[in-house]
Amino acid sequence: MVYKIDAEHDRQYIGEFRERPIGAHSPGLQRVLNIIRNDPSGYQIVLICRKPFAEWVLGTMPPNRLDGPIVIEDEPVFLSREEAEWEVFRRRWRKYTGEDINTPFRD
């Protein structure tokens, strides 16, 4: 049985991810990420780079490219990849646990 995200138990990894969205993670955080990064619906959140190394927004790719275009969001605009990772993590956390994470990427 695949591990089920448990807000009570996995909340401890939120801070770790916020601190370092890209790079080495603890086994517990890696397990959370491996699970939430998979969307069985086939829809895929992607990072749209509008200005190299300067500006990104999010997009959603359908399961098959013949199903339609990537839907690109106008906002929010991210000034780093890490900031975008944090936003996507927050959305997925909400999807899996129903809880909001209200902390911004950086204080």
């Binding site: 890209i22 992607v46 990072l47 780079c49 190299p52 990772e85």
Partner: peptide, 11 residues
């Protein structure tokens, strides 16, 4: 994305 361990960037 899981394999890359970060969001997939589309330029």
């Amino acid at each position: 994305e899981r394999q890359m361990a970060r969001l997939l960037q589309f330029g």
